[in-house]
Each structure stands twice: as structure tokens, then as C-alpha cells.
Computed example of a mutant assay.
Amino acid sequence: MRMEDKICVVTGGARGIGEGIVRKFAQEGAKMVFACDMNINEELNKVENIRSVKLDVTDRDAIKEFVDKVVEEFEKIDVLVNNAGITKDALIQRMSEEAWDAVINVNLKGVFNMTQFIAPIMIKKGKGSIISTSSIVGVFGNIGQTNYAATKGGVISMTKTWAKEFSRKGAQVRSNAIAPGFIKTPMTEAMPEKILNSIAEKVPLKRMGEVEDIANAALFLASDESSYVNGQILGVDGGLVI
């Protein structure tokens, strides 16, 4: 059991990639996994070592209250997965300020908010793993996603900064990111098969990734198996970015 005795917090944990990570951590023996999201997933609450929690990553007061309660009960947080994210796509000349601000607030400031409250707890304990979900879009951009690309590129920069910052006094607090490629989720599965096939053709492995692929990457980075991995961006994209 690679997550035995660990207390984990996963944002965007109620569905899709986040839910896959939550379930993977629980299966691997985590003491408790908090699936934080704007919506409660009652199915997750049926699992003994998972709690589905309503939490807005842009609400700093709510984050502080949540983190304080977790530490009061468990005295630590071992793993933080910053996975919450939204998209509001448009070409730059058509992108509204509201769309820009919304994506920045969730995808970038939300990662900052969660990490600012949880990293000090890890540093005090002397150990921890912070994993943030970036994207291949954050590496090479994408038409119509100025806001999204900016946030995912920012996540990469913050990840590398935190890798240096959190361990500078000897704490074994690691910061890494995952950059998924084209992944099958309930959202993408609703797309026409023709479009999905055209997407898969762009990937060297000629297929889209599975949620399980991202969950396995998160498991590695969260576990002690990656104890010497710090400041890295792990591409899980079938070779799309080479």
C-alpha cells in the first residue's frame, strides 16, 4: 500500500481526473482522502477513507476553515493535489475580461491559495508532496485558450519555484506537476467519434489517455517512491510533446 497512513487533499476531486486520483489514493491505503470540489459526490462518501467536501478554491476563508479542521483531526496533511480547473475558451479579440478573470482565479490563484495554506503545515512536519495539474497547453499553447494556457504555464513556474522554496531549510517537501495530454473523461466522451479519432491521430501512440494514466502518475509523485523527484513536470501525453 503506497499511500498507507497518508492524509490527502485533492481539489477538483468530485469527477473526472480528480475523482480518479481520489479513488486511486484510497485504494492504495491512504488514511483519508478529501475530495474537494464545488459539488459533493455522494458515491465517494460511501468509501470509508474518502470524504467529499464542498470547497471553492477561490474562497480563502473557506480554505482556511477546511485546512484547520483537517489538521485539528489528523494533525497533518501529507499530500496536496491541485487539480481544480475550468475553461472559458475564446480567441483573444473575443475573450471577455470576465472569462479571463474566472479562469485565472480558479486555475492559477486557486492553486496559490491551497498551497499557501497547506505548504506551511508540510514544512513544519518536515515532509510532504504537492502535485499540481498543468497541461500540455501550458507547454506549447493552444489557439483560443489564452487564459487557460497562461494559468497552466503559471502552474509550471510556481511548481519549480516551490520546489526550491519549500525545501531550502531541509524539509522534504516536494513540488511537482503533471501535464496531461488528450485524456478520456466524461466531457470528452460526449464529443463526436470523428473528432475523437482525429485527436488520437495526433498522438504518437495513436490513442487518447485514460484517467487511470493520470491517477497512476499522481500516485507515483505522492508516494515515497518519488522521494527524490522534485521540481519536475511529468508529461502524460502519449508522446505528443517531444
Score class of each variant (00 low, 15 high):
1 M>C: 12
2 R>A: 12
2 R>V: 11
3 M>K: 03
6 K>H: 02
8 C>R: 00
11 T>L: 05
18 G>I: 01
21 I>G: 07
21 I>D: 10
22 V>H: 03
26 A>F: 00
28 E>P: 10
28 E>F: 11
28 E>Y: 08
30 A>V: 02
31 K>H: 02
34 F>M: 01
37 D>L: 03
41 N>C: 13
41 N>S: 08
42 E>A: 14
43 E>L: 12
44 L>D: 13
47 V>A: 06
48 E>R: 13
52 S>C: 04
58 T>H: 07
58 T>P: 04
61 D>G: 13
63 I>V: 03
63 I>R: 00
67 V>F: 00
67 V>H: 00
69 K>W: 00
70 V>N: 02
71 V>F: 00
75 E>H: 10
76 K>A: 01
80 L>R: 01
82 N>L: 08
83 N>F: 05
83 N>G: 03
85 G>R: 11
88 K>H: 13
88 K>N: 13
90 A>N: 14
90 A>T: 02
91 L>Y: 09
91 L>Q: 04
92 I>E: 05
95 M>W: 04
96 S>C: 11
98 E>T: 09
98 E>F: 09
99 A>D: 15
100 W>H: 08
100 W>C: 09
104 I>T: 00
104 I>Q: 05
104 I>C: 04
105 N>H: 10
108 L>R: 06
109 K>M: 06
112 F>C: 07
113 N>G: 03
113 N>H: 12
114 M>V: 11
115 T>E: 02
117 F>Y: 02
117 F>L: 01
120 P>A: 06
121 I>L: 00
126 G>P: 04
127 K>Q: 12
128 G>F: 02
130 I>S: 00
136 I>V: 15
138 G>F: 08
139 V>M: 15
139 V>T: 15
139 V>P: 11
140 F>H: 12
140 F>A: 12
143 I>T: 10
144 G>P: 09
144 G>R: 05
146 T>S: 14
147 N>I: 06
147 N>P: 05
148 Y>E: 05
148 Y>L: 05
148 Y>S: 04
149 A>P: 04
149 A>F: 08
150 A>Y: 12
151 T>W: 10
152 K>I: 02
155 V>T: 05
156 I>S: 10
156 I>P: 09
158 M>C: 07
159 T>C: 02
159 T>R: 06
160 K>F: 01
160 K>Q: 13
161 T>G: 13
163 A>Q: 03
164 K>W: 12
170 G>D: 02
172 Q>P: 13
173 V>K: 03
174 R>W: 08
174 R>C: 06
174 R>P: 04
176 N>M: 07
177 A>D: 01
177 A>M: 01
185 T>E: 13
186 P>T: 06
186 P>F: 01
187 M>Q: 14
188 T>W: 01
192 P>A: 12
192 P>L: 09
192 P>G: 08
194 K>T: 14
196 L>K: 15
196 L>Q: 09
197 N>R: 15
198 S>W: 14
206 K>S: 10
207 R>N: 13
209 G>I: 12
210 E>G: 11
210 E>Q: 14
210 E>N: 14
216 N>C: 06
218 A>N: 11
221 L>T: 04
224 D>L: 04
227 S>E: 05
227 S>P: 06
228 Y>N: 12
232 Q>F: 09
234 L>S: 03
234 L>V: 03
234 L>R: 06
236 V>P: 06
236 V>L: 07
238 G>F: 03
240 L>H: 15
241 V>C: 13
241 V>T: 15
